[in-house]
Structures are given as structure tokens and as C-alpha cells.
Design a protein around this nucleic acid. Structure first.
Length: 733
DNA sequence: GTGCGGACTTAGAACCGGCAAA
DNA sequence: TTTGCCGGTTCTAAGTCCGCAC
């Protein structure tokens, strides 16, 4: 199987985890838990109809919710909560079906706070002069002002879309009395920005107690929205807060980025709840748009958003039984693919040579989806960012380098670049060449006969419910299983976690999960590099002192002293200078801060005391500056002369011990740097959350004796409670 | 078969809070 | 004690896929 080989080569080349040989011991795994035993087939899941677990009256239950969720009932609450959890996975026969629930009660949604007008003195400036805006327009100007220093505000498309909508709102709300606002360039939002920035600062610098109070207040207000009653059981609601108005932040080159996302009114909301459930009261003076009782869906409320015309839903939270059930089904479906994958691979391999163009395209696309984990790639509208997946790949997205190298270069979901130079199957290469043949030109579809529905129909021939995305789940979890199999069970817990993360990283790379390199990354790397450089400087200095004390040492241990010649006078001076500047800066900063602090205290102390303290601070600062300068002077002179001060307490042993300590620190810092660089552009979370069967993680934790808390955060532990309780150390994907 | 809307999963960015280093 | 960083959480955009109407 050439492609499997290819795949293996691909992953081997990036894999740095220790390996051991291992036979496939699938049959050996114990099947303790019921899910495992039954292996919940999808058909079975679909056919079954939910059975009501408890029939408790709403009133009683409601009181229970209130009691349980008071924030100060601590431990007790958790225990109670534990008992109350609906363990759906213990009865997998009862899952899903067309009808999703029998009764559903909830409190509706929370609306964002009303707009708070700017103070009279904070204004938009137009053509250099302050102008008055109707409140509606002022709000929109404020949206832009608040983001003034972000990247969005520099994007011309963002500016254009914002300004168009701003002008419309301005017109509809009566216009600006002083002047016509018709040029974005003449608008100056800086005063508005400063106002919001100051507010942000104020909020941040509030005393901890005050912050806590505000938080508690908010929690109290939101309490009842957080939970709902689903078939009499308490379940958590996810996004019960309605999205606040603002400017649409589309990803990549989105044609509508910056457009005004208008305020959602109760009249825009459709609620979904049980027929007999009390209807939550809408905000004063308002009505709900619609109230529905549709028990075939899993949402509590929805509204239509005005930018793209998409529907937004209020749903159950990630740890709800709904999400758990669909996660389990998703991974079971991916595991089912295991049984069919050989047949599918054989089929598309043979169809790569088909005489029918459509079959060749299907086969080639399937190959790409299977081997390179591409997404299906549905068609997109003109008013969306131009991103592609497999079926929507165009002429310009692949470059062919004979004999069989393909360079993929395109923007995928979220405008994340997919760039890979890979060796592909010889026949697949030939096919892609044919698909690009004249008269095809840039802008034309590579797979002109395909769309995801055609491809998915082909997949269903092999397995019901098989679609393109299942391949991603399957290959991701399969990769993780293989990676875990190759990890040797030894070392500290931390080392095992590092090995697990390395495996996780392989999956993230397969799925092309990236993140933009954090703004501070480059600076951070430089800082660490400088730190390492300075530690080496310290170390060499110590070694040179050792030699100053006893020249003969060099002969005794050449290797140890070898690096003493690595540091040139120029380099050392450079390091000393950098160090000096930083030290002086630090001292100065401290001084500024002390002064600032004293200014604050001024009101509460006498003038005399204030004077005294000022003097003290000045004195202290001067002392520090003098001391630092003296050190700088010494270091510089040492560097120039390449001769270092020997202290009376020095002994060869003590110096050697210091060198060892530095070596250890350098090693640790270098490791930290490597990790930082390797992870700077890869995001591990998405694959852990969506692609890696959580039972693999649980298996790893149990088999390698790593606490699950080291691998799953609290939210993930809640989301994957079903996996934590059902997989053991022998579990296999 | 095609186009479209609805319902769901998947995704990175933004935000927040706690903790280690200075 | 403060600050800056990092991991975790929240937010909401952007995909996939299905089913229905024509």
C-alpha cells in the first residue's frame, strides 16, 4: 500500500517520540463498561427513542436547582452534583432518535446592557472639530473608537464597511447638526478610544474585593439562565448571553468585515421549549418574536444575524448529555470506518485509473482527504472570504513538480494557510496533471465534476453515515493511537505529559491546526536567547576565574575549559552593555513607580512627612544607581582586560558547583525555548477537543499513571466525563 | 440535480484570572 | 508586591451535512 507507506513516511519524519515495537492487542482489551461491550452501532442509536428518566414535578426540581447552585454551598454541592449527573452512557440504548426531548424548561436569554452614552466632553472630531452625534450614531462610532488600535481598524475593507453603515445610521437618526460627515479620513476617533481605554484601565485596577463583588452580582443575575430542565433533569445551557452589537470581525479577507452587527431585540428571538413549560417573561415593553415547541431539535433559542443572514442558536453547554451523546456517536462512527478503510482504499486506488473522468476525480479527491486530511470544501458565496477545501480547490492552489511532488498552497477554513510540499502517489500525480491540463487556467476548479455531496454519496456506498469529515476524525484518532503506542512507559509524570503533548502535536499538524504567532512571541524568544547568552557569559567568567587561580587546571580537563576561548572581548562588551542598559532601566523604573506611589499617598500624609519620604526615595535611588554604575564599570573593565576579580571566598569546588548550576539552568531554558518555538504556530487544543477520541487520552492517563488533570482541563473533564468513566488502560481506538 | 436554509460541529481570537518571576 | 506571561475559558465566526422545494 503505497499511500499508507507514504503516510507513514510523512509521520515518521516529524516524529521524535521514542518508539517500541508493539503487537496489535485489540482483542486483549477488557470490556468492562457497557458502551464497550455493545460498541453502540449507529443504527442502534438512531432507532432508539428516548425514555424519560425521572418524572419529578417541575416545582420540586426548580427548588433543587436554586439550592444546589448557591455559590457558597461548596463541597456539599459538588458531591450532590455528582450524584445528580445523568449518566446516559450507562444506558446507551436510550440515546437519540428523531424526538430529542419530552419536556424542556428554561429561563430564556440574557440581553447585553443598554448603550451608555459618552460623557458630553468625549466627542468624535471631524475635520479637526468636535461634532455632536445622535445617540444611535455615537454608539456605532464608539464601536470603531474602541478598536482603534487593533489590526481591524487598519484594514481598509473594515474601515469602508464600518463607515458605510455608520453613515446610514447617522442619516437614519437625524444626522450631525454641525456638518456633513462624508469622509472617513476626516474622522478622528482618538478621543473616544482614549475614553474607552481609560475605562478599561479603571476596571482593571479596581481593588480585588470590588471585582469579586461585581462578579458575584453578575453571577446572581445570570444564575437562572445557566441551567434548564431537560426531561426533568438539570442541564447546563451554553451561550445564554445574546451577542452584543458591534462591528463584524470576519476572518481573513472577508468582504463584510467591519459591517455593523446590530443589536438583537427580543422581537428577533425565537424561543424553543416544551408545550407545558412556562414561557419566560420578555424584557419590559417587549415581546418574543416567536415561541416554538420543536422537540426534534437541540436548541433553546435562535435569532437571525443581520450580516450574513445566518441563524444563531442558544444551545446546551459542552458538558450536556446532548453534546456527550453526539461526541460518542461521532467517535464510534470513526471507529466503524476502521472496518471499511481497507476496502475504500483499494477502491479509490483502482479508480485512480478509471476511464470515467468523474470516477478519477472522486478517487483523487478521496485520496487527498484520506492522506492529507483535507476538508470536504463546499462552495462559497461571493460575500464570504475566499477559502477552499478539497472539492473547491482551484488551478492555482496546487503546483506540480515532476516526478510526483505536489505543493499545496491555499487558504482553508478561517483563512488559515495550508502549505505543504509532499510526495504523492504516482497515479494521483498524473491525474492532477490531467485536471490542470489546458484549457484550464487560474480561477478554474481542479475538480470540475465534484462537490461534497457527490463525494459523500460515494462514501455511503461503503458505510452508512460515512462523510468526508469522518476521515479527519478517523485519521486523527488513528494517528494518536499509533503515537501513544510508540511512547515508552518510563520517566517522570512531567516527561510523560511532554510525550503526550508531542503525540498531540502530530495530530494537530496533520489537521493543520494553527494559531497566529502571539504578538510578543518574537520578543519573548529574543529575551530568552539573551538570557541564555548571559548565563553562558556568567559561566565562562567563572571558568576563567578558575584558570586565573590555577593555570594548570586547563591541562587536567581540556573539555571543561574549552569554551573559555569562545567568548571574544567584543562579544563580552556587547553583553555587558546590554546588561547595563537593562539594569539602569530597571532602577529608573522602580524610582518612577515609587514617586507615583508617593504622589498617591500625598493627600493622606503631612507635608513634612511627604518631603521626608521624597528625600528617602531620592536617596535610595541614588544609592542604587551608584551601585549599579560601579558594577558596570567593573564588568566593563574586566571585559576589556579579560581579567576577572577573584573573591577571597572562591575555591575551585565552589566555582565548579556554580558552573554546574548554570549548566542546569541553561539546559532548562533552552528546552523552554525549543518548546516555545515548536508550539508558537501549532494549536493543540482543537484536536484534543474535537478529533482525538477522549478515551485515548483516558487510556493514556491510566496506562501511564498520569493524573487526568494533567491532560484535560476542568471543562474538558466535564465534557468527556463519559470517556473518563468508560475507558481503561487497555482501551483501543 | 440543484439551490437554499436549518442545525449542527469545528475553529482561532479575544479575554480573563492566577501564578511565577523579578 | 507588582508585573508579565500563560493556560484556560468564552466568544462567535466558519465550516459540514442534511433535507426539502422546485
Amino acid at each position: 500500500m503505497t499511500d499508507q507507506k507514504l503516510k507513514k513516511e510523512k509521520s515518521d519524519s516529524i516524529n521524535s517520540v521514542k518508539r517500541k515495537s508493539k503487537t496489535d492487542d485489540e482483542s486483549g482489551s477488557k470490556k468492562k463498561i457497557k458502551i464497550e461491550k455493545d460498541n453502540v452501532s449507529n443504527k442502534k442509536l438512531k432507532k432508539s427513542i428516548p425514555i424519560k428518566k425521572e418524572i419529578t414535578t417541575t416545582k420540586v426540581k426548580k427548588e433543587k436547582i436554586k439550592k444546589e447552585s448557591t455559590p457558597n454551598s461548596d463541597d456539599n454541592e459538588e458531591e450532590e452534583e455528582e450524584d445528580d449527573t445523568f449518566k446516559w452512557w450507562e444506558n446507551p440504548d436510550d440515546l437519540d432518535g428523531e424526538v430529542k426531548w419530552e419536556t424542556l424548561e428554561h429561563s430564556g436569554v440574557i440581553f447585553p446592557p443598554e448603550y451608555e452614552p459618552l460623557p458630553k466632553n468625549v466627542k468624535l472630531y471631524y475635520d479637526g472639530k468636535p461634532v455632536t452625534l445622535p445617540i444611535e450614531a455615537e454608539e456605532v462610532a464608539g464601536f470603531f473608537g474602541a478598536l482603534l488600535e487593533s489590526e481591524h481598524a487598519k484594514n481598509p475593507v473594515f474601515q469602508k464597511n464600518f463607515f458605510k453603515d455608520f453613515q446610514n445610521v447617522l442619516k437614519d437618526s437625524g444626522g450631525c447638526p454641525e456638518t456633513d460627515i462624508n469622509s472617513f479620513e476626516k474622522c478622528d476617533f482618538s478621543k473616544i478610544f482614549q475614553y474607552y481605554d481609560k475605562k478599561r484601565e479603571e476596571k482593571k485596577s479596581l481593588p480585588a474585593s470590588e471585582k469579586k463583588l461585581i462578579k458575584e452580582e453578575k453571577e446572581k443575575l445570570e444564575e437562572k439562565y445557566k441551567y434548564c430542565l431537560l426531561d426533568g433533569r438539570k442541564e447546563q445551557v451554553g451561550n445564554f448571553r445574546i451577542e452584543p452589537p458591534g462591528l463584524f470581525r470576519g476572518r481573513g479577507a472577508h468582504p463584510k468585515t467591519g459591517a455593523l452587527k446590530r443589536r438583537v431585540q427580543p422581537e428577533d428571538i425565537t424561543l424553543n421549549l416544551g408545550k407545558d413549560a412556562p414561557i419566560p417573561t420578555p424584557p419590559n415593553g417587549h415581546n418574543w418574536g416567536e415561541v416554538r415547541h420543536d422537540n426534534t431539535v437541540a436548541w433553546l433559542a435562535m435569532w437571525k444575524e443581520n450580516i450574513m443572514g445566518n441563524v444563531k442558536y442558544v444551545r446546551f453547554s459542552q458538558n450536556s448529555s446532548f453534546k456527550g451523546i453526539s461526541d460518542l456517536k461521532k467517535f464510534e462512527k470513526a471507529r466503524e470506518l476502521k472496518k471499511h478503510i481497507d476496502k475504500i482504499r483499494a477502491d479509490y486506488r483502482s479508480k485512480l485509473k478509471s476511464n470515467l473522468m468523474i470516477d478519477r476525480q472522486i478517487a483523487t479527491a478521496t485520496y487527498l482527504i484520506d492522506v492529507f486530511a483535507l476538508r470536504a470544501g463546499g462552495e462559497k458565496r461571493d460575500d464570504e472570504a475566499d477559502t477552499v477545501g478539497c472539492c473547491s480547490l482551484r488551478f492555482e492552489h496546487i503546483f506540480l513538480k515532476p516526478p510526483n511532488i505536489v505543493i499545496f498552497d491555499f487558504l482553508g477554513k478561517d483563512s488559515i494557510r495550508f502549505y505543504q510540499e509532499v510526495q504523492v502517489d504516482q497515479q494521483a500525480f498524473k491525474n492532477m496533471k490531467i485536471f490542470k491540463k489546458d484549457p484550464k487556467k487560474p480561477g478554474d476548479d481542479l475538480f470540475d465534476r465534484l462537490d461534497p455531496s457527490i463525494l459523500n454519496k460515494y462514501f455511503q456506498e461503503f458505510m452508512t453515515g460515512l462523510t468526508a469529515k469522518v476521515f479527519r476524525t478517523y485519521n486523527a484518532s488513528k494517528t494518536m493511537q499509533d503515537q501513544i503506542d510508540s511512547i515508552v512507559n518510563e520517566g517522570t509524570v512531567n516527561e510523560k505529559v511532554v510525550a503526550f503533548n508531542a503525540a498531540n502535536r502530530e495530530v494537530a499538524i496533520l489537521c493543520n491546526h494553527q494559531r497566529t504567532i502571539p504578538k510578543a512571541h518574537q520578543a519573548g524568544v529574543q529575551k530568552i536567547n539573551e538570557k541564555i547568552e548571559e548565563m553562558i557569559w556568567q559561566k565562562i567568567k567563572l571558568k576563567r576565574i578558575m584558570l586565573q587561580m590555577d593555570k594548570t587546571m586547563k591541562k587536567k580537563d581540556m573539555a571543561f575549559f574549552e569554551e573559555t576561548s569562545d567568548l571574544t572581548k567584543e562579544k563580552e562588551l556587547e553583553i555587558v552593555t546590554r546588561w547595563s542598559e537593562r539594569e539602569l532601566e530597571k532602577v529608573q523604573k522602580k524610582f518612577e513607580k515609587d514617586k507615583e506611589k508617593l504622589k498617591f499617598e500625598k493627600k493622606s500624609i503631612s507635608t513634612e512627612e511627604y518631603k521626608k519620604k521624597t528625600e528617602e526615595i531620592k536617596e535610595e535611588h541614588k544609592k542604587k544607581v551608584d551601585k549599579t554604575k560601579e558594577m558596570i564599570k567593573q564588568f566593563k573593565s574586566e571585559a576589556r582586560k579579560q581579567k576577572y576579580e577573584e573573591k577571597s571566598t572562591y575555591t575551585a569546588e565552589k566555582l565548579k558547583a556554580q558552573v554546574d548550576k548554570l549548566d542546569e539552568r541553561i539546559k532548562n531554558t533552552s528546552l523552554q525555548l525549543k518548546d516555545k518555538e515548536e508550539n508558537s504556530a501549532v494549536s493543540l487544543g482543537t484536536s484534543k477537543m474535537n478529533y482525538i477520541d477522549p478515551r485515548l487520552t483516558v487510556m493514556f492517563a491510566k496506562k501511564f499513571d498520569v493524573p487526568i488533570e494533567k491532560l484535560f482541563t476542568k471543562t474538558l473533564r466535564e465534557k468527556f466525563a463519559w470517556a473518563i468513566e468508560s475507558a481503561d488502560a487497555d482501551w483501543r481506538f
